[in-house]
Amino acid sequence: MSAAAELLDRLSTVRGIRGSALVSASDGLIVAESLMTGVDGRAVAALAASLVNRLRRATECAGRREPMFLQLHAAEGTVLAAPCGAELVLVAVAGPDANVGLARLEMFEVVGRLA
């Protein structure tokens, strides 16, 4: 198992996390994943990478530095994303029962190890 896959598996042990993926920022394709059945990883990867790229441009245009963390609340859970260097985006899909604070800390840990 690759180092990235091991880190994603560890992230997926956080309560409520349904899965996580490391995505190529420039093409929106999955580099490594640890997703539960029922989560369309390919769609999450493509759309999350697109969102992070657009937010990156928005914050740059606003004279701010690139976003460090993205937290999207939905009716039945949360999508979390964190840029991991210029080339990668770490994405996690969480249910409504997730410990988002712990997930966020774990994601920063993964980003720090991979960046």
């Binding site: 995505v23 190529s24 420039s26 093409d27 929106g28 394709l29 390919r42 769609a43 990867a45 493509a46 759309l47 990478a49 697109s50 790229n53």
Partner: peptide
């Protein structure tokens, strides 16, 4: 403006 992942999807 797009990515190969989005186009494929």
């Amino acid at each position: 403006e797009s990515t190969v992942g989005l186009v494929q999807l």
